[in-house]
């Protein structure tokens, strides 16, 4: 592996750009993603940045079961992303269809339309769970891209979250 490639892969792990796509979700997961990016749990400190276009993104965060109408759009957007690309399914719906299993217009989880790298279950997962999932994803990424060292980021410890909470409340 050339030096340049190594550098690029390293940058990918250190600062993945994420893109958020709603494939028919109820919004619960979407607001929790935004909450995870907001001041309290600040995902940006891991270098994760939300971008508005699939062409700029490395990782797509998918929420919601895939409805019939959204499926072609989801696939088209997936094609528009540049390689290497990763998909994270956020929420029970995106993982398996959740409460909407058995509906005539729903295909099930996101993995019925496009390949998924990581699943974050929960209805909706708490922002801290999303943070943890993102951290896990970074681990997987570094493995896949051949970067052996530890990712710089540590998951937020329970006490830390508590202390942040107290600080905000005070």
């Amino acid at each position: 592996m050339g030096f340049l490639r190594k550098l690029i892969n390293r940058a990918r792990v250190k600062s993945p750009y994420v893109f958020h796509f709603n494939s028919g979700s109820c919004n619960g997961c979407d607001i929790e993603i935004i909450a995870a990016l907001m001041p309290r749990l600040d995902l940006e400190r891991f270098g994760i940045k939300l971008v508005g276009s699939p062409r700029h993104a490395d990782v797509m965060l998918c929420t919601g079961p895939v409805t019939e109408q959204i499926k072609p759009r989801l696939q088209r957007i997936y094609e528009q992303m540049a390689e290497p690309k990763f998909v994270v399914a956020i929420g029970s719906c995106a993982c398996s269809g959740g409460v909407f299993r058995g509906s005539y217009n729903v295909l099930g989880g996101v993995d019925q339309a496009i390949p998924v790298t990581a699943y974050i279950p929960g209805c909706p997962p708490k922002p801290s769970a999303i943070t943890y999932g993102a951290y896990k994803l970074l681990e997987v990424l570094s493995e896949q891209l051949g970067i052996s060292e530890d990712v710089a980021a540590e998951p937020v410890a329970e006490e830390q979250t508590e202390s942040i909470k107290e600080a905000v409340e005070a």
């Binding site: 709603n22 028919g24 919601g64 079961p65 409805t67 109408q69 959204i70 759009r73 409460v99 909407f100 058995g102 509906s103 005539y104 217009n105 729903v106």
Partner: peptide, 23 residues
């Protein structure tokens, strides 16, 4: 509109009231 049509009203007809509550 209609991209998010999950046919909730149809699923509900096959579930009990308590289940529909969570739906």
């Amino acid at each position: 509109i209609g991209y998010n049509h999950r046919s909730i009203e149809k699923i509900a007809e096959g579930r009990t009231f308590l289940q529909v509550l969570y739906l």
